[in-house]
Design a protein around this nucleic acid. Sequence first.
RNA 1: GGCUGCGUAGCUCAGUCGGUUAGAGCACAGCAUUCAUAAUGCUGGAGUCGUUGGUUCGAGUCCAACCGCAGCUACCA
Length: 667
Amino acid sequence: MRRILVTSALPNANGAMHLGHLFEHIQTDIWVRFQRMMGNECHYVCADDAHGTATMLAAERAGTTAEAMIESFRREHAEDFRRFLVGHDNYHSTHSAENEHFTAAIYERLAADGRTFTAEVEQLYDAERKLFLADRFVKGTCPRCGEEDQYGDNCQECGATYDATELGEPRSLLSAATPELRSSDHYFFDLAQFSDFLKDWTASDAVQPEVANKLAEWLTGGLKAWDISRDGPYFGFTIPGAGDKYFYVWMDAPIGYMASFKNLCERTEGLDFDDFWAADSEAEVHHFIGKDIINFHCLFWPAVLRGSGYRTPTKVHTHGFITVDGVQMSKSRGTFINAGTYLEHLDPEYLRYYYATKLAANTDDVDISLDDFVQRVNSDLVGKVVNIASRCAGFIHRGFDGVLSASVHDEALWDAVAQARHRLAELYERGDFGRAVREITALADRANQYIAEYEPWKHVNDPDRRDEVQGVCSLGINVFRALVVYLKPILPAMAAKAEAFLRVEPLAWEDAGTPLAGHEIGRFKPLFTRIDRKDVDKVVAATKAEAVAEADDEAEDDGAVISIDDFGKIDLRVAKVLDASFVDGADKLIELRLDLGGTQRTVFAGVREAYDPHALVGRLVVLVANLAPRKMRFGTSEGMVLAAGPGGEDIFLVSPDAGAEPGMQVT
RNA sequence: GGCUGCGUAGCUCAGUCGGUUAGAGCACAGCAUUCAUAAUGCUGGAGUCGUUGGUUCGAGUCCAACCGCAGCUACCA
């Protein structure tokens, strides 16, 4: 018996589960259920990936704490997966005591063995929000092609990749402040020390051939050290002995696999962590991932495990991406379908089956054609497989008291069906579910042909042919039962209903090798209902509606409507102009020296065409006092003076009524 | 830009080591059937295998270039 630990990639704890997540978890779950039917010991764990700046900011935006938000998402995700019959043994969180323990322990081991080092890194820093900006939180002008409004890592327009520090006119997406360049010490994992190990490991059958090709490219190019730290504030685990430094989310995320399993071990009798994770473990560890995170799982993760004295993964199963009707999932098209939205209208097993028909052991992208989805499920499952039981059961009940014949009517047919279990097991084992399904439905075709050939409905009243009718329909039922075995990893709920109909114990893989004989079955009830295309349309319509609602929310976030709290963030002050002068070389600017009732500010105002500096001295104006300082060609402007009007000569400064004093807050 | 993968019937996809006339399911058309959830069976039409060139007795398959799609980019600037 094999001992196997299986994982799916950890979903982010900041959004709902959608068709893409389900693709991976359903794929994994099918493999896990197959292993269990084979009699192997198989544990399946997952967790939410809770850490990172994105989580921190999402919680802030939602007006809650990160801890509360991730726990709410964790429950929601676990429930979504459960309803899709994905049988995780544990659905944990990377924000857990176990994970903190393992992350620290692994890091300390790596550090003690000289696998890590520190180096100074220059990064863009948002002084207003007081945090370093990840690439996705800064936009600016592409250093190569000059396209505006590009993110900090690459240009959508020309495809250039660069550091955020190279952007022209960078701005923070968090505060609109101009980020400044700051340096700080970062901790690095020295991946290059593991080059030889990784060359061997990736050339083994631990990864698929096309993945090995991709990895070979990276390996021959030389491995760079991996930045595993982030400066606070950050939602994550602090690095032991490193002050306000946190582990980068990708450091503790894969360790979350171990943590989730540890958590499972602690509440499961006889399940021992070291049996699976010790360097000399003879158990297997399988990771299922998408091709976007190959580098983390096939370079970084094996190296970290190797360096910290644990076993390395047996196999990383990489899959491609999902498209719907030929294009990427899109909210406006209604194809960015969330798990919850799907479940309001459709049976989870429809999707499980359709995904299975499309899955192979490669990294090709998989297209979900909604028409094909409806047709495949209806014709394969209802029209072919379930139909076999449906058309045979009536005869068995009406003519033979529900009892199957004692012998097999057509040995050749039964043999073909029973022997298929060996080939199908191979296909399941290597993840070739689509091919397995094709071969299973081909067997269903043979059964339907066989029944049509003997036409039991013509002979059921002929006393001389009673045995033949019973034999044909009994074999039909037995073929059906074998097909249920073969489909059970994909369709566990349908299999359970079929087991009740057949009056048998839960089916294991080897049961497909032995027919039921002289066995009494129950009354047939529909095991599966057809998909109504209208229900698919409802899912699409509901998804579109969600997209519109979200767009409205975002409009609010963008400032179309602000709350009183938002307004409170703006510090407006009455200020008195102490001095005003033209700025040499500037067409529009006047430099103002302002008194805020004790402190003074220098502010540049674009009012030169409308005001004479001498006329401004001594008057009161309203200043945005907490606006981020802006470096300009002529100096730094420390605020903004409020004025109305379209510009040019038509600019009108806002001033308070008599009685206001410099420094007063405007509310 | 570089790299990885993909491109086969209206749709979704097989096609092993280069080998006979390129296959399946769905959809479509005709016939049969009426046990079965309008399910099933039989027959049929449907293809420039992305393009061009090359290797070969023979190419969907191998090689090169190009086009298109998807993705990666921890290669440099």
